[in-house]
Computed example of a mutant assay.
Amino acid sequence: MAWRELKKRLSEFLEIPGDVMLDLPRIVMVGNLQIFIENHHGILEYTPELVRINVSGGELQINGSGLILRNILPDEICVEGEVKTVTFVR
Rank of each mutant, 00 (worst) to 15 (best):
G42V: 03
E12F: 07
R70P: 00
N63L: 11
P17W: 11
G57M: 11
G31T: 02
V51N: 05
G18A: 09
L33R: 15
G64H: 06
L73H: 15
N32K: 14
G57P: 06
I68G: 13
V20G: 01
I62T: 07
L69K: 06
R4H: 07
I43A: 06
P17H: 07
G57Y: 08
Q61W: 14
S56H: 11
E45F: 07
I37T: 06
L14A: 09
W3L: 12
E76V: 07
R26D: 10
C78Q: 15
V30G: 03
L14K: 09
L10D: 01
W3T: 13
L69T: 03
F36C: 03
G81Y: 07
V28F: 02
E82P: 00
I16L: 11
I43P: 09
Q61F: 04
D19I: 06
R52V: 05
G18I: 00
I37P: 04
V28N: 10
E12H: 13
G42N: 05
T47W: 06
G57D: 12
I35G: 07
P74R: 10
Y46G: 01
E80R: 12
G81K: 04
V86D: 07
I35M: 12
G81N: 05
G66E: 14
E76C: 08
V86L: 15
E76T: 02
I68P: 01
